[in-house]
């Protein structure tokens, strides 16, 4: 029982990342009809926004300390971050410590700008081209973006820790009456889960309760008619691309303390997120979120030793197996809409 609860918790944070990426993918597909294989790269760029802010806040002045030596025997360099010189040691250290949450503010304008540039500069030229062309160009773009990041940041993971206040684990077991230290869960993963719920709720509320969202939903349902009413739906869809890029970017920013980011992390999530979108139903936002959490939890269950003892290697194929089963029984996915991707 305790193992099951623990794996459900594990699945929630994994599912949160899948759901956030899949939500952005579905937004872009539903509005612009583009299959965006560069979406994983946007997640990765978001993570590197947090890394960049950490590096900016850690920029330091260098002084030589003659009492210590470096590895070559020269006087050691003592580095003092500028933020500590400017704002005092306590505030400066706190700014560096909180670089990941501050990365959210840093990433939003950057990700929206990248989304605009991607959509206006490249993707809009492929709206009327076949999906295969869109996949090729966006996949190529993803490779270019990750190579650019590797050029500047290297291939190795870069540690980007959570603020000190969120280190350590929460003892769920004690709260639920189990033995202490049996069901424990890292604080930051809880933060990630609640953050993703907030973002997903925000996107749904934006689409559901604002005039802008209403027009976008109308455009998703019937782009031509909305256009005939004199509404510039293209402009709104471009803004939605920017929002989708920001959602992926924020998912990346907040993911950095969970696993140290590297240039390849977007690709690691991309294929799984596409499976999530297909299982949820192409173009269905609630479907993407539901499938994200469901597959995240199933993936965690499949990693349990008891399950692997019966089905060796199941942890590596469970997501694809479930995808096949769902598509066999519900060809449009869990919450797929009739007519989407069927022409």
């Amino acid at each position: 029982m305790d193992a099951l609860l623990l794996q459900i918790l594990n699945g929630l944070d994994k599912g949160s990342a899948y759901a956030l990426i899949a939500l952005g993918l579905t937004l872009i597909f539903g509005t612009l009809g583009v299959v965006n294989f560069a979406h994983g790269a946007l997640f990765m760029i978001g993570a590197f926004c947090a890394v960049t802010l950490q590096k900016i806040l850690s920029l330091s002045s260098t002084t030589l300390d003659p009492t210590k030596t470096d590895f070559l025997g020269n006087p050691a360099k003592i580095e003092t971050p500028y933020v500590e010189s400017w704002f005092g040691p306590e505030i400066g250290a706190a700014l560096i410590d909180w670089s990941v949450p501050l990365g959210i503010l840093f990433a939003i304008p950057i990700m929206i700008s990248i989304g605009f540039i991607m959509e206006r500069g490249l993707i809009k030229h492929f709206y009327k081209r076949p999906h295969a062309d869109q996949i090729l160009v966006t996949f190529g773009l993803a490779i270019v973006l990750q190579e650019v990041i590797k050029h500047f940041y290297g291939a190795n993971p870069i540690p980007t820790p959570a603020p000190d206040a969120f280190r350590g684990s929460f003892d769920f077991g004690s709260m639920l009456g189990f033995d202490p230290n049996v069901i424990i869960y890292p604080y930051w993963r809880l933060v990630y889960f609640f953050f993703s719920v907030l973002i997903i709720g925000g996107v749904f509320a934006f689409l559901q309760f604002t005039t802008f969202g209403m027009v976008v939903r109308a455009g998703m349902a019937d782009r031509e008619t909305v256009g005939l009413l004199g509404i510039n739906i293209d402009k709104r869809f471009t803004i939605m691309f920017g929002i989708a890029a920001a959602v992926a970017g924020l998912a990346g920013v907040m993911y950095t303390p969970i696993n140290s980011p590297n240039y390849h992390m977007g690709m690691d999530f991309l294929v799984l997120s596409f499976v999530v979108v297909v299982v949820g139903g192409m173009g269905s936002l609630p479907g993407a979120v539901l499938a994200g959490f469901m597959l995240g939890i199933l993936e965690s269950f499949a990693s349990m030793n008891q399950i692997k003892a019966i089905f060796p290697g199941i942890d590596q194929i469970i997501i694809y197996l479930v995808a096949i089963l769902i598509l066999l029984t519900r060809p449009r996915g869990l919450m797929g809409r009739k007519g989407v991707m069927e022409d």
Binding site: D2, A3, L6, Q7, N10, G11, D13, K14, N181, V182, I183, I184, R189, E299, S300, S303, M304, N305, D315
Partner: peptide, 9 residues
Amino acid sequence: SSYIAPVLN
């Protein structure tokens, strides 16, 4: 995480 969790128990 899903491989670490079983270690706990």
